[in-house]
Simulated scan of single mutants.
Amino acid sequence: MWSLVEGANLGWFRRAALVATAILVGWLSSAGAVGAAPALWLVRDQDSEIYLFGTLHALPAGLSWRTPLYDAAYARAHTVWFEADLSGADPRTIGDIVRRYGVDPGAPLSRKLPAADLRALSQQVDLARIDHLRPWAVALMLSVRGAAAGGAQVQKGADLAVTRTATRDAKPMRAFETLEDQARMFASLSNAAEVQYLSDVIREQGRRRARLTLAASGESLQQAWISGDVERLAPGLVGDMRRENPSLYDALLRRRNLAWTDALVRQMAGSGVELVNVGALHLIGEDGLPALLQARGFEVTRVQ
């Protein structure tokens, strides 16, 4: 795992790219529950339909999440969308991206973090092997490792599961971003926002009960996602980020969602059916894709 940012291990960064928009192991979408199933929205105008599905990027093996309604949407879709295009994810390209955006040899990580966070981090990783990395890269690495420790696997996540199915079925696939776009997004954070992001992840990883389990109810995010019970849980998760690290919220969610909305509006100008699979965090609240598309005048309905 550590060789990713040192030597561009393809497997690690492929997984990291898929969770780059989820911070921890998947967050949740908002809106009232419509049946016990992961949330799915339908956006339509006179001659176009786009289904919006909020994924968890990492899931345990054997978890059944596909429903007849999702499968029907997939079958009808002419094109299947994902967050990132992994077609160019060869080791040389990945290594170049990491060297350009994830490494800072002139300012070691050990000089950027507060002393308490540095001590906590040293209990989780070998500092000597990551001291050249930028805070966002370390935060992402810790998040992936935290997901794996909880039994979740990106290879079993909804995104890669649908990618494999679409590849098998020769479905046309499109992506909103490239891997470089995602790395550039994290690298564009201010120093303060980037350090705070890592500090938050360090503290999260140090807790016995991280956000994979909500302390108040004991209900896991995964359970809430699979049951579609997101109305109560989602606002606090996204609200925390918006309040505590507004720069990260703006870069990770708001600006990207606005760009993705523009892309989907262009698609709605044509005709047909499309299926969009993105991290469920991108479907939350007033800056989520359902709300933004509704504000553009489209009919938006949560159908699952």
Rank of each mutant, 00 (worst) to 15 (best):
G146E: 15
L86F: 06
E274R: 10
T178F: 01
A115I: 13
L292D: 11
T213E: 14
I130N: 01
Q304P: 01
Q182A: 07
R92D: 15
E286H: 14
R100P: 00
W65M: 03
R266N: 05
A139H: 04
R203C: 01
P135Q: 10
L63W: 11
G206P: 04
I23E: 06
I226Q: 09
A166I: 06
Y74D: 03
A8E: 13
A16Q: 14
G285K: 05
A75D: 13
E274M: 11
A291W: 00
R255A: 11
I284W: 15
A107Y: 07
Q205V: 15
G288I: 06
M173D: 03
R129N: 02
A120R: 09
Q222F: 15
T261N: 06
G146R: 15
G102Y: 02
A17W: 08
E6H: 13
V80W: 00
I130S: 01
E299W: 07
T165I: 13
G62Y: 03
A61G: 10
L59R: 13
G150H: 14
G151Q: 02
N277L: 10
G288P: 04
G288K: 07
V154E: 13
P135C: 06
Y249K: 01
I202W: 01
D47E: 12
G11R: 09
V265I: 06
L109M: 04
V278F: 05
V238N: 08
L69K: 12
S217T: 12
H132L: 12
L189H: 04
S122T: 12
A152N: 13
G150W: 12
L289T: 11
A183M: 10
S227D: 14
V273Q: 08
L289E: 08
A149F: 05
N257H: 09
A8I: 10
S190L: 05
V80Q: 08
W260F: 03
L127R: 01
L237P: 02
I94W: 04
P235A: 09
R232N: 14
L275F: 10
L179C: 11
L127K: 01
P68V: 13
R66F: 00
E274T: 06
A149S: 06
G239F: 03
R211E: 12
R15L: 02
F82M: 11
H78Q: 12
A36Y: 13
G236I: 11
V303P: 01
R209P: 00
N9W: 06
H57W: 15
W225C: 02
A116Y: 03
Q153F: 07
L160S: 05
G106D: 08
Q123D: 07
R99N: 15
S143D: 03
T301Y: 00
W2G: 10
E204Y: 03
A161N: 04
R76N: 12
G88V: 04
L24E: 08
A259T: 12
L109F: 10
A259P: 01
T261R: 15
A161M: 10
R100V: 02
Y249I: 03
S122E: 14
A161E: 07
M268K: 08
S220E: 05
V276T: 08
S64H: 13
A280R: 02
A259L: 14
A251P: 04
L59S: 05
D71N: 12
T93P: 00
D117W: 03
R164I: 01
P290K: 08
Y197S: 11
L248A: 09
D45Y: 04
V195C: 11
R119N: 12
T165A: 11
A77Y: 03
L293I: 15
L221G: 10
V303E: 01
W2D: 14
I130K: 00
E231P: 00
L127N: 03
